[in-house]
Amino acid sequence: MADGDHLLSLRGVCKSFGGIQAVHSISFDVDAGESVGLVGPNGAGKTTLFNCVCGQLRPEEGDVVFDGTLLNGMPTYKRARLGIGRTYQKVEVFTDMSVRDHLMVAERARRGEGRLWRDLCNMSNPTADEKERVDATLELVGITQLADISVNALGLGNCRLVELARALAAEPKILLADEPSSGLDLRETEELAAVLRTVQRERGTAVLLVEHDLSMVAQVVDRAVVMDVGAMLAAGTFDEVMANPEVRNAYLGQVDAV
């Protein structure tokens, strides 16, 4: 196995719900620092695949290998500590919590901290080091001015940025972004795409992007993998994939891409 060459490798991953195969024998790789788009029609199994990588679902067959470690059966939080970060299609922010605290949760979780006795001995105040890292991440995503505001007061666009910043605060090696543009308008989508590009450039984080908005995918990714009804249809550079007649048929219909 040449897993050392790839950051994330999926080998024949299968998952079904009640007899319906949601993901059927998917294999592809993502290299360090690379950005890959995962596109496909609704119900193609993209989010299911994401959940298999993050550990919320257990695939029935196949292996997920990350950074040389076989992840099968590993709980979500351990995978996160290995360096898998993600955002969610349906925004999952922490109600009543300030943006800075969102990042502090990630900052501490990364190192597996959270021991009660440290709290009881008043030993868990943020250190200068941690504050600095949190501020740097806020700066990178461009939400420094929101730091001390509760997420309850924020709109969807900002919530998506908070999710992104929170995932980055855990310093992942790969970021899985699940339909980050859904529910955003054109302008907000462009801003988000810009942030994703910056992240990839400045931190060297690999990005796996699930997205419907093809113009956004085109802006962000190097390569694309196309799925339909749980199976892989095509893989290659974005333009190659979009030129594939099978893909055009399944995904785009008569409409012109982008």
Binding site: Y77, A80, V93, V105, A106, A109, G114, R118
Partner: peptide
């Protein structure tokens, strides 16, 4: 402290909290 913050986060979204480690 850390545990309190984690618990508050879990009240908001347990999935996302686990997803952070």
């Amino acid at each position: 402290g850390t545990v309190g913050r984690n618990l508050a986060a879990m009240r908001g979204s347990e999935t996302a909290t686990a997803g952070l480690g």
